[in-house]
Simulated scan of single mutants.
Amino acid sequence: MKKYLKDYEYKILYKRIIFTCWILLIYIFGTHIPAITTVRTYTAISNFYKMTAANVGGDYQALNVFSLGLGPWLTAMIFMTLFYYRDSDRMMKQTRREKSTKERIFTLILALIQAYFVVFTLLSHVKIDHSEKWLIILVLVTGAMILVWLSDLNMRFGIAGPMPIVMISIIRSIMRQNVALSELGPTLLISAALVLIIILLVLIFIEITEYRLPYLDVMDVSSRREHTYLAWKLNPGGSIAIMISFAAFFVLNSAVNLIVQFFNSKNNGVLNFLDFSTPIGITIFLILQLVLSYGISRLILDPKRKAKDFKKNGDFFPGVEPGKPTYHYLIHKARRISWIGAFIVTIIIGIPLYATLLIPQFSKEIYLSV
């Protein structure tokens, strides 16, 4: 019986691997189907946008059926998760179909905005009718929704959901960058490696560091008193805040250009101030990163719910009365922790981005390190 179960598990694993391979073959085949074949696309989108798109399965090197990748879907899922974070009971009551329908509608809206920006950016130099551009937008949005459907199928019948698609896209992006490390020189290479190691150690320190708030547990009646404390991470937002910041900045860029195109149809170019090649664009992104990182950290810490739990359990902090004083105490601590984590992450991301303005010839290498 044990041998039969073991063989059965292996058969299921093989089937999942084969199914994932078929999904990847479809994805690779789709990336070779151009959305437009008559003209070459314009490279107005920066290398950083191209790398960011590759991290979610997209491809802005040339317009193809799957150029949008999984960006709209992943962004929609993250925002929906954060939206329901405070009201988890409401989310639990919803069926899988209801949650999936809301995700798909939000994904469709984001895909339309992103496709509009990509098409009117990459094809800004091409004299084609608006009807043709809207047809290309329809192809891109359709491809994005098909990719979402394939990822959902792989999540149920394959392995690792959307991650195999993302990994293939990242590998392709790295191979396309043609990073000229030999031009950096040994001194600069060693300095860059040391900086990356220091940043990595700082990130690990932030990840494992906890801010502990000791409190008294009234239910602990044991003779041996152990210290009880509320542990909060120094960077509660983690990588979610960074992902949302990039997605929000890209959506902001797309929305601004969409509005400009709508009110000024003669302007076929793209606004450059919301770009990583300008100090204004980098500054706006870093401000967005700081604010979103702080807000997401506050949302995850949720001092209001913690204060209710303390009041319900009868626990209290030394020198702090239960009820509103405990809530205000937790609010104060949550603000301090959230701002510290947000500032550290913003500085780590901001320094290399500003460095690209000083040495633009190595922008690809710096973007890749980020």
Rank of each mutant, 00 (worst) to 15 (best):
228 T>I: 04
357 L>M: 08
290 L>R: 03
135 L>W: 09
354 Y>L: 05
102 K>L: 04
213 L>W: 07
108 L>A: 15
291 V>M: 07
168 I>K: 01
5 L>F: 13
131 S>C: 09
67 S>K: 03
25 L>C: 14
80 M>L: 14
238 G>L: 06
29 F>R: 03
205 F>P: 13
33 I>L: 15
206 I>A: 06
7 D>I: 07
220 D>H: 08
37 T>L: 03
249 F>Q: 00
330 L>E: 06
90 R>E: 10
82 L>V: 05
209 T>F: 07
160 A>M: 11
149 W>F: 15
133 K>Q: 05
274 L>K: 00
171 I>G: 09
22 W>T: 11
168 I>E: 03
265 S>H: 12
220 D>M: 09
156 R>K: 10
12 I>L: 14
238 G>M: 00
35 A>G: 15
237 G>T: 08
48 F>S: 03
310 F>E: 02
240 I>K: 01
146 I>R: 01
195 V>D: 06
207 E>A: 13
329 Y>A: 03
48 F>E: 01
82 L>T: 00
97 R>V: 12
308 K>T: 05
113 I>R: 01
159 I>T: 10
365 E>P: 05
352 P>L: 02
363 S>R: 04
178 N>V: 03
166 V>P: 01
222 S>Y: 10
86 R>I: 11
214 P>Y: 04
14 Y>K: 12
161 G>Y: 01
